[in-house]
């Protein structure tokens, strides 16, 4: 089965926020709401021996998505491509899925009174294009494709990176599918939630 998702190469991420703005422009995301948010991880260590990387956060397109499981109406669902989506027409706005997400990747649209999140730009995929964040990425750090297909760009990138350099967010049974590439040479992958990420409203 296909599982389309993102692979983000943190050795390459420049922390320029281009993906974030591209996403907001493409999807008309409201102020203070993010489908895609770039966090600064670090600098960790003590000056001058410090490390830093950027973590573009996004829906992790979990294999075993808890948001889909708890949805009382089936508004949250999974496509054949393994992408988690929300049918906004039947969402009752109970926000249970927001609680079930281990990463806070979902947000409540105060105007439409429904829950929303990254769609991996399915509307662009439908016309054969890549998600906006991938297309415009300045560092060419973002790859989109089928992680179950060994011949896909994402799979190849992961293979090339080597398993030691491939990371994912903590798994509490949800099996996130987004993969982050970070080599030790750039920085050490931080296992726990970072405290200061340069973004005010984070941890809120």
């Amino acid at each position: 089965m296909a599982h389309k998702t993102l692979v983000i190469d943190l050795d390459r991420c420049l922390g320029c926020f281009s993906c974030e703005v591209a996403c907001k422009m493409e999807n008309g995301v409201a102020l203070g709401v993010y489908f895609n948010k770039v966090l600064t991880i670090g600098p960790t260590g003590t000056f001058p021996d410090v490390e830093m990387y950027f973590l573009p956060t996004v829906c992790q397109e979990c294999a075993d998505a808890p948001c889909v499981k708890v949805c009382p109406t089936g508004a949250s669902y999974k496509t054949e491509d393994g992408i988690v989506l929300i049918n906004k027409d039947i969402c009752i706005g109970c926000r249970y899925c927001m609680m079930a997400c281990p990463y806070g990747a979902r947000s409540f649209n105060n105007d439409a009174k429904v829950v929303e999140k990254c769609t991996l730009c399915v509307h662009l995929q439908a016309i054969g294009e890549q998600p906006a964040c991938v297309k415009n990425c300045c560092g060419k750090a973002r790859l989109f494709g089928d992680i179950d297909d060994p011949a896909s760009d994402v799979s190849k990138a992961l293979k090339a990176a080597g398993s030691d350099a491939v990371h994912s967010l903590p798994d509490v049974g949800n099996h996130p599918s987004v993969r982050y590439i970070l080599h030790r040479k750039t920085a050490t992958w931080q296992q726990s939630q970072p405290e200061n990420t340069g973004r005010e409203s984070q941890n809120g």
Partner: peptide, 15 residues
Amino acid sequence: LHLGHPERIFGALGH
């Protein structure tokens, strides 16, 4: 009161 769209609550009957 907590629901964004209480009028759609009957959708929950199917789940």
